[in-house]
Write a protein that binds this DNA or RNA. Sequence first.
RNA 1: GGGCCUGUAGCUCAGCUGGUCAGAGCGCCACGCUUACACCGUGGAUGUCGGGGGUUCGAGUCCCUCCGGGCCCA
Length: 891
Amino acid sequence: MVREVPDKVSLDGLEQRFDERWSAEGTFAFDRTRSRDEVYSIDTPPPTVSGSLHVGHVFSYTHTDVVARFWRMRGKEVFYPMGWDDNGLPTERRVQNYFGVRCDPSLPYDPDFTPPHTGTEGKAVKPADQVPISRRNFIELCERLTADDERQFEELWRRLGLSVDWSQTYQTIDATSRAASQRAFLRNLERGEAYQAEAPGLWDVTFQTAVAQAELEAREYPGFFHRVAFHRPDGTPLYIETTRPELIPAVVALVAHPDDERYQPLFGTTVTSPLFGVEVPVLAHPAAAMDKGAGIAMCCTFGDLTDVQWWRELRLPTRSVVQRDGRLSREVPEWIAGGPGESLYAEELAGKTAFSARTAVVDALRASGDLDGEPTPTQRMTNFYEKGDKPLEIVTSRQWYIRNGGRDWEARDLKSELLQRGKELDFHPDFMRVRYENWVNGLNGDWLISRQRFFGVAIPLWYPVLESGDVDYDNPIVPTEAELPVDPTSQAPAGYTEDQRGVPGGFVGDADVMDTWATSSLSPLIVSGWERDPDLFERVYPMDLRPQGQDIIRTWLFSSVVRSHLERDVLPWKNAAVSGWILDPDRKKMSKSKGNVVTPMGLLEEHGSDAVRYWAASARLGTDAAFEVGQMKIGRRLAIKVLNASKFALTFGVDPETGTGEIVLDPAKVIVDLDRAMLAGLASVVEQATAAFEAYDHTRALEVTETFFWTFCDDYLELVKDRAYGAGASATGVSAETVSARTALALALDTMLRLLAPFIPFATEEVWSWWRTGSVHRAPWPTAAPLRAAAGDADPVQLAAAGHALAALRKIKSEAKASMRTPILSASMAVPAGLLAGVRSSLDDVRGAGRVEGPLELVEAAEGQGNPDVQGGIVVTASELGEPPVRKPKA
RNA sequence: GGGCCUGUAGCUCAGCUGGUCAGAGCGCCACGCUUACACCGUGGAUGUCGGGGGUUCGAGUCCCUCCGGGCCCA
């Protein structure tokens, strides 16, 4: 074993150098000849490309990489692909602005399309100026635009040192993903797990699309309580309170709690609505809140989800007035026509937004005397689409759903099955399972997957157009799996021609796309080569690990479990590792709007990748972490120390003539107690670090390793310095004690580099390259056995004892404000009984490191003498310092 | 309103099943250019473990309660 240690060590440039080498040598390439039990497969989160990566990404992706590197060294062949999530609204918006186009699925594909311009980033192109293009053209532009982002992302990940196999990448909008997504949907359909229904659902009026429960966000929204009189048959008023008086035309009942004595006499009677005079029943339902407002509520079709519940459970009629565009219907509804409110509706409400209609209704109520007092301001939690900024309306529409246990299904008890899957999944940390269970238990409907958007994976269906001209939604035309992916808006189904589109006897394509989660929920299947590469599939699926953020347990994690359970009747992975948030120093979640986001590449350039990784890796899974530059500096210090200490440890025994020398890794050569004690301590570190990693507790692995490493540098290295130098600087002709020290140093270094490799891959690889062959990242994870064999019966306490003794000698110099080089002419130390043997056995090393040139007397410390927390209780009772050596002029 | 997590030195955090658990690093103070490292080394100071109850021979560690932070769901 020959070494080539540079004269000057440095971290600079290691990232690029090793990224290139790892690529060239295929260090992280997946060996697909290995069988499933030899593989560790990871379902990496595909980052959204139409955005930028932030510190939080660096944080959580580092966690995954640390785990990946550990298992790779542990002997597993790691399947570690990377995906790009370029499917969804953010990309759609960017493509619109960048190319000045918009998607119009009714248009045919134009193979020669050239966008009007490119790169209007930053300033939005007015919708009127956007050129309409087909969905297929739109998707092509998306793929073109995101390719550039994907290159930048990959560059960052490479620089961070993610040990991804870069030949295994996918995009959530690429043909493979689209085909997989459509195939999975068709199979759901075939098994009765996907169905369409005409039902009231949450609707975003801005985006004009249905919204799923998982995409909801409740926000405080200002409004006013209006106290409004309904009228009993005898003319007496019955007051209700509402924040949405514009829905009075849509009222179908008044509802109070069954136990509410105030209203019990009225149950079963009817009242008439103000302004419109529509007769509605007064009904009882336990979902009514007795203590809120008047205690009796107006049930409209539909103001909120409670209205939907009442409507369904009390079997109320449907009187919708709010349309998909968020405006009241332009026609006077039949239940209002001919009544007292007809002209009010026709003149003041028809076609108005909910907001304008509200003003008009309130004015009218005030005029009619049905408004009691003035509206009082309130803040209430209102449902929003997470990407929208207007409150959601509830409208009735035909949508596609996938069963997810949120609604009863006669075929099977899906909710229980999915809860059971949650119990089978190993969550790290374990308490994250509760969030999964809470979500599953709280589901109130199946998974709405259709979206009235243009860009995304199309619902792969057509519908016959009957001779009457009506569309027969109940008998969709289904493509074969071989045809996938299809775009029903620009392709005709088999057996039809394009000119039959939309004509009686012909067909129409489903214009909707699927929710992005409908595709990303399949990521474990997509990356594993489901139905595309059966050979790969059987080697990697079900996968070992899903790393992800805690915010998307209800979406990505849950929906992935649903799909895998339905399609394969198995969990998609064995483990889920959930990372926490990055918080800024004010304990707030870091975000762009607060202006406290640091660019990841800037961080890596400033501190070095190992340093940033160290910071990230010091945070436990599931725990929020502070953005701490200080922690990165400590990481950098560790990386540099690894370089320097290694250089030092590898210098001993170098033949001054040739600059080379044999490095010995033969445990049998370790014969000195102190050396063996050090290896005994290291053996225990190996055991602890291994156990911690296996329990997905990488921070503990780092902590024990790092602690040992610093003690190794500060104490052991100092203690054995003189002995390791030996008589000369040659590998031959030295004492067995010198060989023992050199061998122990090499063994320890070899072990510690491996232990640290997952955390600081660049510095460790650099050192490895000085004296070993191959990559440290493909070296086997260390085991304790050989170290234990070398250590024999040595006790780590011997190293501690010698270290404490050295510290006690340093202390007298420090207190005398003398240089550490100052010789000690004589000294006397009181050593606690437990440490005495250890100090005695390493006395020569202690004397050398402490520069004790005269007698060093050891006596057993008396009871109570010394503080065990300070130098282990070792006290120097008497000492005489010499003159420090004359300073050598530095060359 | 319900659920989960969290509150330990100025800062960031360890403290696993209750008994050397009152710790580490940073920062701070003092000293030191020592043939690996000044992006360094050596030594030192620092806390009624959020508050209050309780269980126990004994509690950061278990229970109750209150207060403060974060997140999810109503």
